[in-house]
Amino acid sequence: MSSRCRARLAALAALALLSACDREERQSRAQPVPETLPTPRQSILQPGVPARTAADPRARAYENNSYQMSQGQLLYQKMNCSGCHAHGGGGMGPALSDAEWRYGGSMEEIVATIDQGRPNGMPSWRGKLTEQQMWQLAAYVRSLSAQPRQDVLSSRPDAPSSTEPATLQSRQPVVPSSPAGVQGTSR
């Protein structure tokens, strides 16, 4: 057996092994989800007994899904998010790859920020992006601080200049500016 043949066999075996790995689940057909967008609280202060809010099921579905994330990456560039937030480092807008989140760093909160806009210059994209696109963007935005699982992070930077792939970035802690105790969506 030639060495080349052996190498090929080894590669095939590796592929077979990989196919047995637990890949992220991707729904080929979207399941019906609630029509309304989440409106997360913007303060951790809740007079009286804090109410418990259930997490939006879409947060999980989008966040740890590399397809949605790479769709988000595409949108991030095409819709000019990168114009203000650069490749996470920020500019006109705040950095997205650090540990600070002015309006919360959970999936729901990021979607709400994209949808509603924020008073100090973040535009409201309602009516310009679909809900699905907002969730995809949120998934990508969280990947800028390497929040999602390493195996679903994008290793392919779309930008022509030398930006570091998300898989090589150090994980930033999510600092909740709101609401109480939310550390991302992977609860």
Partner: peptide, 13 residues
């Protein structure tokens, strides 16, 4: 002044 993240070379354009 905007507290940007310098790990990103493209920060602040």
């Amino acid at each position: 002044s905007n507290n940007l993240n310098t790990a990103d070379a493209t920060a602040a354009n």
